[in-house]
Design a protein around this nucleic acid. Structure first.
Lengths: 345, 345
DNA sequence: ATGAAAGCGCTAACAT
DNA sequence: ATGTTAGCGCTTTCAT
């Protein structure tokens, strides 16, 4: 049986209040008393019962991170960033995966609200406007990650999906490419990453005076490597000529890279390729992959900070909307740009 | 303020015991009463306070998974497997990362023992015989993952490191390779994955009558992609002729692959390459990577099962040692083996 | 500087 | 089939 405050106080010959004071670094404890208490704690190998502490204080110092799945490298790296940011603030992280279907996403959202956590970081995947209600109803403090939900009912830390994707597309257009394939679209979707990144792609085309052609937009329901390979193969079968590929994330891009090379297309000579996310692997693929660094660490840091404020602040305040800066990372899969080569120049 | 059992019981006009009975699916509740209680629960949007429940019952239904880092794809996939296995048994998973140094590994191990969890799954990385005491002292039910610690003081579910690595090496030797580089050694280490996989490599060489040459064993402290690239480059600089590479994990292999190709070595024609872990990416590299599937899902399933037994069983029982089966996965980075081509044949 | 005592919300004996 | 009650171990007034 584990030792309790009472055991310690008995052994040290003080009241439990004094032991509690020592544990919680209450300053007004005589030094000799403190020593006696510490000795008793060490002897009994006492550790506070966190369930009791939580019950009493109403705080658990645990937050949950709700993501689609850890197998997806992007989310593993996000989880890593979140755990580091959380750990700096003394928080532990309970990860919940919901897979890739909307049903379980909703059910995780509903069930976990009461889950012994102080707050929730939730990386929205499949929900949209229609589910705003479900999101608004969550009473546990919650911060949304990674997507943009307009006028969202909750705090929200996002990457710049549209701007990043536009910059990625411009990387190809500025290099003189004109027939650029977009990989990973979700037809009909407006406010998820797929919709936003498609919007950025279109913006870039328009700004460059290039035509938007639906045949160059290839859907991919999920964004695994295999989906990228499949989507690329599907496009190749159309026989349409092309000279660039914007993939909506890095794993799609890496799956496509494989298929391009098998089919004899040289990257970047014949086809320039750019991804999105800047996962570790993009440094080591052959060729290395140009991509967009969405600012994951910054997203994690800001999200944890915002969540803590939301947990601590009894006064409700207006939901905040934070978009962190992104960076364009040029590597071997896109040819070097000439500094001043603008389409209209 | 969140509703409590008392609020519900008052609204439903029953005692809190009855409400508790309904929540815990106690069968002997009149149906009309149950309906009344359920209605009250719905109206008040009641969810049980899990801290109180834990305090009372002594169970949290949370286990922690202690791993080096999620950024490492192997551990992300392991975490995914563990979370699925845990979720099937009604458990949530609190992940703790300790990075790559022995100090923080020990400190996580010590501190988290009291962390409001029913049990711990701990993927040992840097500890060895000298730390057996620290491991034995953990009082929370704990199951070790992934390494072999002989006569371990705790339950242990492991992959077959020696046998798997031997099989990987034999894949090259059977293909006629004789000058096989080993990548990722930890000099002096005996009981970690690096030591065990090196032992498997040596066993295979001996069995095939090939010489063991220390110059062909390249150390790599951590096993990231960059380390594989660095180690491969270091070996290439020796100028020694070689025709095969056994990497002690897949990311090392993929980093090495990149360097080999840059240096003009064709894989598998000039150099055959095999990894270990069967991470998702090995299906999509160019060429695809032959590897060892260590049986992650099975490891996770058995570990959770064993941990639950350890948590439930008041009688201490002998620590179990479980080694799950592995599979050799032949892909493009090793040439097809001729069925009966044995070295002595 | 330290002690006494109440109570957080729940489960599980024990009653009836 | 349902009600009463005693804690689980801690923090937190309120005393002294």
């Amino acid at each position: 049986m584990a030792a309790t405050l009472h055991d310690v106080s008995r052994l040290a010959g003080v009241s439990i209040k004094t032991v509690s004071n020592v544990i919680n670094d209450y300053p007004y404890v005589r030094d000799s008393t403190r020593q006696r208490v510490l000795a008793a704690i060490a002897e009994l190998d006492y550790t506070p019962n966190l369930s009791a502490r939580s019950l009493r204080s109403g705080r658990t110092n645990v937050i949950s991170l709700i993501i689609p799945e850890l197998r997806n490298v992007y989310f593993a790296e996000l989880a890593d960033s979140v755990m580091r940011a959380a750990s700096e603030r003394g928080l532990s992280v309970l990860i919940e995966q919901f897979g890739n279907d909307r049903e379980s996403e909703l059910s995780v959202l509903r069930n976990r609200s009461g889950r012994m956590v102080d707050g929730i970081l939730y990386s929205v995947l499949g929900l949209d406007e229609a589910d705003r209600q479900a999101i608004a109803e969550v009473t546990t403090p919650m911060v949304l990650l990674g997507e943009r939900i307009f006028n969202g009912p909750k705090d929200h830390v996002t990457m710049q999906n549209v701007e990043g994707s536009r910059a990625a597309t411009e990387l190809l257009l500025d290099g003189g490419r004109r027939r650029v394939v977009a990989l990973g679209a979700h037809p009909g979707e407006a406010i998820g990453s797929a919709g936003l990144r498609l919007a950025g792609y279109r913006e870039a085309l328009e700004a460059a005076g290039a035509d938007y052609d639906e045949r160059f937009v290839i859907p991919a329901g999920t964004w695994h490597r295999a989906d990228g390979a499949r989507a690329m193969r599907a496009f190749l079968e159309t026989g349409l000529p092309f000279d660039g590929v914007v993939a909506f994330n890095d794993t799609l891009a890496l799956g496509a890279l494989r298929v391009l090379q098998e089919a004899g297309h040289r990257v970047p000579d014949d086809v320039a390729l750019v991804g999105f996310d800047d996962i570790d692997e993009t440094h080591y693929s052959m060729p290395t992959l140009s991509t967009i660094d969405p600012g994951r660490d910054e997203i994690a840091r800001r999200a944890v900070q915002l969540l803590l404020r939301r947990i601590a602040d009894p006064e409700p305040f207006e939901p905040e909307e934070i978009a962190v800066p992104f960076r364009v990372i040029e590597r071997e899969s896109t040819p070097a740009r000439l500094p001043a080569l603008q389409p209209e120049g």
